[in-house]
Design a binder for these strands. Structure first.
Lengths: 88, 88, 88, 88
DNA sequence: CAAGAATTATGAACCC
DNA sequence: GGGTTCATAATTCTTG
């Protein structure tokens, strides 16, 4: 009865149940993610109708993410290389 | 005094406040989005350690978003192309 | 005889020939691309054995690509701030 | 005078010359790579205007890189998962 | 709807 | 050699 998909006593179906659980949870979270994306889109639309430039606004937000990270880069060594290439 | 940036009664600062609000809300939602992405990643990791093939699992979830007719169509088309190249 | 794949007089086979040509050319170019990637990898390996830090070296090369683009970016951003404060 | 960057007799400048050579060669190869990528893109565009489905075409080319046994295995696995979820 | 940016997925490389 | 990060490829989304 290996292929009887109604027989929950088989290992095959234990795996099937597990797979279902995994797929369900992923799909659930993806929907929430999608809803948030929609909310974000709405805010951009609101910004646009308030006269802000969307493209530049995106750029601004991107920069705010990057700036803290950029501080502690391997600045020293990079600087040495840049000097070697006359990029000072 | 339209350019006096310390005067909160000017339209300039109303716009600035509006921009701040917009940026704050977007950043907040983006963080939630990021958290969800992390949760999804965790589930894939769990699936992997349960023995599922992640790549195939992703394909499966992608397919579930499509209409059955659409799936059928792409599969048929792929088959046509494979035959055309003798990949039967 | 619509499905006779040996009949070159059918439109189906004209399409098949076209597909073959397309696939062949793409695969050819991808091989060249792969060969170049391999060459680049070799140079990084050489750099490493000469004592250079590969990660920093990659960062340096990335920067050399971006720097010209960044000039314009900053100007755009300045404009954003001005607009946000109604200083247009 | 170890830090005199104008003194070409120092080991520092030997390293600088070496770095320059490395960076130059990498940048040269990356440009060639970029040109090939552009050529490939053009062929996909041509394929599209000839009526081919680009997404399926990409999948086909990906498959041609795999071993036939590997393709079969993934297709089988996908089928198993689909059945487990009742997607028949 | 085509072009381009932005996100996501896959593949490669490095470290432990 | 396994897992984690990094780099490239591909798809999706947005804008003109």
């Amino acid at each position: 009865m290996a292929l009887d998909t109604t027989d929950t006593s088989t290992t095959g179906n234990i795996a099937a149940d597990r797979l279902k659980s995994i797929v369900d949870r992923i799909e659930r979270l993806e929907e929430e993610r999608k809803a948030l994306a929609s909310d974000i889109k709405d805010i951009y639309a609101e910004a646009k109708s308030s006269g802000f430039d969307i493209k530049v606004l995106r750029q601004l937000i991107r920069m705010r993410k990057q700036e803290p990270a950029e501080i502690e880069e391997q600045e020293t060594l990079l600087d040495v290389y840049r000097r070697a290439l006359g990029m000072v």
